[in-house]
Design a binder for these strands. Structure first.
Lengths: 114, 114
DNA sequence: ACAATACCTGAACAACTGCTCAGGTGTTTC
DNA sequence: GAAACACCTGAGCAGTTGTTCAGGTATTGT
């Protein structure tokens, strides 16, 4: 009996493995959570829940540099959490879809318990 | 006119700031997303969605060491994503509440689009 | 055309993360 | 009680992250 057969939960293991048949989806899903898992980026998303904002607005709200905001916005854009609208020399950001608000609400419900 | 008053979005900034009146909640929320934002931990949670599992089961599913699993379980436990049940020398882990499944489902919906 | 504004980019850095290794505790079996 | 098992913990490490700095582009105003 080798190490992987030692204990008797082969059935549970087979069942559990089915939860991640598509490794690519798992990685994308993790990336989505990860992007919301940083206080700075979460604050940006929370702010955009209320108002459309330009880079300097966000920098003012967070107290970090324009450059820092710009880097984070690129990430949020890549993962399709935010979209942007150019108006002259300014770029206005807003949330890209309604699932993000749902995600925040469900998360708040978990944190709020107890 | 100083730098922070330069542009004319003071109203938007005031509105957006209201979204994070409680900084402690923001940090807790970010921690919750962060813990799901790592592929290894997300896989653990996905697996536990299907079956109650012990440490060695999880290690077998993920292909990492018992020790690595143990470290991650402590984190998941601290953030109340999982609970544990001792049975002899084994420890069985399962999800702690139903919001976690909701979180995963909403996340999948976001990732699935396009 | 020049200066100011709003934003973006690459490089660099300190801080943090996930993992393994070595060694530990508690439980079961012989 | 000794050996085997299931799990936990602290230390250490390579890789990643968030931020700033310096310098870049595009747009506007004079």
């Amino acid at each position: 009996m080798n190490k992987s057969e030692r204990h008797s939960h082969q059935q549970a293991i087979r069942t559990a493995r089915k939860a991640m048949t598509d490794p690519e989806t798992v990685v994308s899903l993790a990336e989505t959570f990860k992007v919301l898992g940083d206080p700075t980026r979460l604050k940006i998303v929370l702010a955009l829940l209320r108002a459309e904002l330009c880079v300097l607005d966000i920098a003012a709200i967070l107290g970090i540099s324009e450059s820092g905001v710009s880097h984070q916005m690129r990430l949020l854009k890549t993962l399709r959490l935010v979209k942007h609208r150019k108006d002259g020399k300014m770029v206005f950001y807003s949330l890209d879809d309604e699932h993000i608000e749902d995600l925040i609400r469900v998360g708040e419900r978990h944190v709020g318990e107890r």
